[in-house]
């Protein structure tokens, strides 16, 4: 009871914090928060493959990029496209890419999966460069219109206002994260974890492993697409090196590892830590990535559970200490 009350309190505090952020912070901090949230969702979607299904993808950026380019393209080419349908197109194109590739991807795991995803993201990079009349090639796409959000009976909400866009995006991202979390709690979510543990046994329980993997891939890609789509709206620009460059696939992976593998929420912590780190290093931007990579190496070497494990270690030690303290006091009382 007490635990669930504390949980609700925590959620209320987080929601209140997110709601009041535009009032408390300036534009700079707000953008930082929004950028971090986008990458948190991106990392969460990758984590669905990494922590829950045990698949390491070196090319998750291709789904992020599909979302970003899908949204940018539809807003550029299609006049009067509404905001939500633009995001939908982004997510759908990411799912489409995943489904097209899934017949090849579901057959493999481990190193082969990593290399295959990398190969596909390279192909996508080359394709984007090749179709430069559509995608803008190296220059990317920018300046596409951001339509207002239409809510029936309420009217138009102008997205060019920082605050409105912030509330809108944070709701989309939050909702997506929640849906993903729920996804891991469903019966299908338990199949996901079982595939990670022992795909052969899952097969011999009568579950169709390749089909299940394809669905997981589609869901993961879809949410990466949502993140990419919101990113395109947020930046009002998509560039090939921004969404498909060498670091685009590695950064969310690094976030997952720093935050802590094997948990749902780990990547959020990882993204947070990464963002704070980059901010702290903002006076020396050249060294920021270096420090980031050193943090990753240290985490992999010394703290395989990531930040979450560190937190658990500290709290459990604290609980042990507290219990010791309490028993000592009780003993003392008893003796006296």
């Amino acid at each position: 009871m007490k635990n669930s009350f504390r949980k609700w309190l925590l959620w209320a505090a987080i929601l209140a914090g997110l709601y009041t952020a535009p009032v408390l912070f300036g534009v700079f901090e707000l953008n930082l928060l929004l950028g971090a949230s986008i990458f948190a969702l991106f990392s969460l979607s990758l984590n669905l493959l990494l922590s829950f299904t045990g698949l390491l993808s070196f090319g998750h950026a291709m789904f992020f990029a599909s979302g970003a380019y899908g949204t940018a393209l539809v807003l550029t080419r299609l006049d009067g496209c509404s905001l939500l349908s633009a995001i939908f197109v982004g997510a759908a194109s990411a799912v489409l890419v995943a489904l097209v590739l899934s017949p090849l991807l579901v057959r493999v795991g481990g190193h082969t999966f990593a290399m295959l995803t990398m190969a596909f993201s390279q192909i996508m990079y080359a394709t984007v460069m090749k179709f430069s009349h559509l995608t803008g090639g190296n220059d990317g796409m920018s300046g596409f219109p951001i339509p207002p959000l239409v809510i029936p009976a309420v009217g138009l909400i102008d997205m060019s206002l920082e605050r409105n866009f912030y509330y809108f995006s944070i709701s989309i991202l939050g909702l997506s994260a929640w849906v993903m979390w729920f996804f891991t709690r469903t019966p299908f979510g338990s199949i996901m974890v079982s595939i990670r543990d022992n795909p052969d046994r899952v097969t011999y329980l009568g579950f169709n492993v390749p089909l299940s993997k394809a669905i997981i891939l589609g869901v993961s890609a879809g949410f990466a697409g949502v993140a990419g789509s919101v990113y395109a709206l947020f930046q009002n620009m998509v560039s090939v090196d921004g969404v498909l460059g060498p670091l685009s696939s590695f950064t969310p992976l690094i976030n997952c590892f720093i935050g802590g593998l094997g948990t749902f929420i780990g990547p959020v912590f990882g993204t947070g830590i990464g963002t704070i780190l980059l901010e702290l290093m903002s006076a020396h931007p050249e060294q920021a990535q270096l420090v980031f990579s050193l943090v990753l190496i240290s985490v992999v070497l010394f703290l395989p559970g990531g930040a979450i494990m560190l937190y658990w270690k500290i709290t459990s030690r604290w609980i042990v200490l507290r219990n010791k303290f309490q028993t000592a006091i009780l003993k003392g009382n008893h003796e006296s």
């Binding site: 990494l50 481990g110 670091l247 690094i254 980031f292 990579s293 050193l294």
Partner: peptide
């Protein structure tokens, strides 16, 4: 050092990530 953790199947993920970290580290250095 990684093999000491007894991570089971996940050891592959950690090794890959370590080499990714070193790759980024060398490039940035």
């Amino acid at each position: 050092q990684i093999r000491k953790f007894k991570l089971g199947k996940a050891v592959v993920l950690f090794e890959l990530m370590l080499t990714v970290g070193i790759m980024v580290c060398i490039e940035e250095a």
